[in-house]
């Protein structure tokens, strides 16, 4: 099978890869770019463990072809922290014990980041619906929702302070 050459940006860095036309972006990220923070839980877009952003939009990378990423910006969990500083969501997930086994955590973090970029003060219900595409089997979601709530609060405070 002939490979497709793709140029894209991943977490701000320019990357180039060759992949078969039917290979998923998830497999490209995991197997060709070594970004194994992106997880595969189902391969059918039902669990959200492979959540990434594509030009800022939340998608399941298992439902996107690697070839479709040409010229686009990809964001994964690996790009969340800046230098040595964790993202507020990452800090709050640890602080609020919002993870147990942690396999769903990368997907939740990416989904929650997209939510807070669009809505800096979401209600509990808005958080629950925004994260409804991500499955977690360990926590019952309780501490995840609380971590997103406290992140939103801290990030709003940060914005106010920097104004």
């Amino acid at each position: 099978m002939n490979g497709v050459t793709v140029s894209a940006k991943v977490n701000g860095d320019a990357v180039q890869y060759v992949c078969p036309p039917d290979e998923s972006l998830l497999d490209v990220l995991r197997n060709r770019l070594n970004l194994t923070g992106v997880k595969e839980g189902c391969g059918t877009g039902d669990c959200g463990a492979c959540s990434i952003t594509l030009d800022g939009r939340l998608v399941c990378s298992c439902l996107v072809l690697g070839a479709e990423a040409e010229g686009r910006e990809i964001g994964t969990v690996e790009g969340l922290s800046e230098g040595g500083k964790l993202h507020t969501l990452q800090e709050q997930f640890i602080e609020k014990a919002a993870l147990q086994c942690g396999i769903c955590t990368p997907g939740f973090l990416v989904a929650a980041k997209v939510l807070l970029e669009r809505n800096s003060n979401p209600s509990e219900e808005e958080i629950r619906y925004a994260l409804a595409g991500n499955l977690c089997r360990c926590t019952g979601y309780d501490k995840i929702v609380r971590a997103v709530q406290s992140s939103a609060k801290i990030m709003r405070r940060g914005k106010k302070a920097s104004r």
């Binding site: 194994t36 992106v38 595969e40 994964t76 690996e78 969501l89 640890i94």
Partner: peptide
Amino acid sequence: TRVNRPDGVDKVTGRAKYGAD
């Protein structure tokens, strides 16, 4: 006490290695 878990940073940065990693 409610301390931060030691595997927390690995798990929120995607560094933690699971079966398929």
